[in-house]
Structure formats: C-alpha cells, structure tokens
C-alpha cells in the first residue's frame, strides 16, 4: 500500500497509537485512520458519558433528543458525531467518516457499498477487531477502515431499543451496535 503524500499535522502524530507507522516521508493510511478513529471515539464517549448520560440519566437536568432544536434539548451523541462529519466535509477535508449500522434507525445509514457490507458484518462477527480494505468509489480509490461501535452508556441502549424506527430492540451494554467507517483517498 502506498503512503499518503501528506504533511502530517503534529497533533495527529501525537494521537497515534502504539502500532502507528509515521516516518518523515509520510504516514500509512491505516495509521491515519486509526488515529482519526481514536480521537473521534474518545470525543464521542466523553460527550456521551460526561454530558448526555450525566445530565439526562443521572442528574436529570436536561433531556437529549433527536429533535434537539425543537425541544431545546441536548444533541444525541450520534447526531453530534454526524454533525462533525458534515462540518469536516464542508471544510474540504479529503478524508471522510460516517456512522453506520446493520440495524440503523435511519435507513440511509445501513451499509451501502460492498466494503461497508463486508466490514460491518466482520466487526459484528469478530468482536474487538477492525476491518481494513481498499475500495473504488466514483472513480477514486480509498483506503477504508471499519471500527466496531459499542454501546458505552445506558442512554445508547435505551434510545435505540425504544425508537419506533429501530429494527433491533435487544441491544445490551457492550454490544456492537454499528461501526465507524473512515475513508482516506489513496493514489492509484
């Protein structure tokens, strides 16, 4: 696999895990995807636990709602994640990320490409493992990484199990509920 010919921001390097490969010449797409995922996952977990679960479920001072604007409520963690993904695209990022599931509340978020279909099934069948592949979309080649997305707080489970549009009503803490898919354009 070819390295990305990009200047790697220092912050991104700082976020790389133990297995990361970063050299002066560049950084592998997988290292970049892993680092992005670590930041995304951590930020969302912090938001879920410290904001949503604490204020809604423990302190009971404010609700989180899908219709947050309408109900003057907190944005749901999944919505915060998506809003970030959209804002990142708006800023012209070359990479992209999305939150998908085999059991999505919104059907537009079920796996669509072959890589997504394979990857989402893989992370459900092989708990704890990520899925990496290459794919070609719209004539461009991407390194595509699929990371399991776990139920980390009671709020995740309650909301999904009780939602009128959910195809699955028996999620438990620690279950793989879906996956984060990160795409990085590569040469070739």
């Amino acid at each position: 696999m070819k390295s990305l010919k990009v200047v790697v921001p220092a912050l991104l390097l700082a976020g790389l895990g133990a297995g990361a490969v970063a050299t002066a010449a560049g950084i592998t797409p997988q290292s970049m995807a892993d680092a992005l995922h670590m930041v995304l996952e951590t930020d969302r977990t912090v938001y879920t636990r410290l904001i949503v679960n604490r204020l809604q479920n423990e302190e009971k001072v404010i609700k989180a709602s899908e219709h947050w604007k309408e109900e003057k409520a907190l944005v749901l963690p999944a919505q915060m994640f998506r809003a970030g993904a959209e804002m990142t695209r708006d800023k012209g990022a070359s990479f992209s990320y999305s939150l998908l599931s085999l059991w999505p509340v919104n059907k537009q978020n079920k796996p669509k490409t072959d890589a997504e279909k394979k990857g989402l099934q893989y992370v459900v069948d092989n708990k704890g493992k990520n899925f990496y592949t290459d794919e070609k979309l719209g004539g461009k080649k991407y390194f595509t990484a699929v990371y399991p997305d776990y139920a980390v707080a009671q709020a995740c489970i309650t909301c999904h199990n009780d939602h009128k549009d959910t195809p699955k009503k028996d999620f438990k803490m620690g279950d793989v509920m879906g996956a984060v898919v990160i795409r990085i354009p590569v040469d070739g």
Binding site: E86, D90, K112, L137, G138, V181, R183
Partner: peptide
C-alpha cells in the same frame, strides 16, 4: 428550515453511485 437534503449530506464518497 434545516434543509432535509443539504449539499453536505451528499459529499461523503459512499454516495458516489447515487450522485451519478
């Protein structure tokens, strides 16, 4: 009006086939 179909929703490469 919180546009239901804003441009940013379609820019994810996973929508490339639909955009064709």
């Amino acid at each position: 009006s919180d546009d239901s179909h804003p441009k940013k929703k379609f820019e994810d490469p996973r929508n490339a086939e639909q955009l064709d």
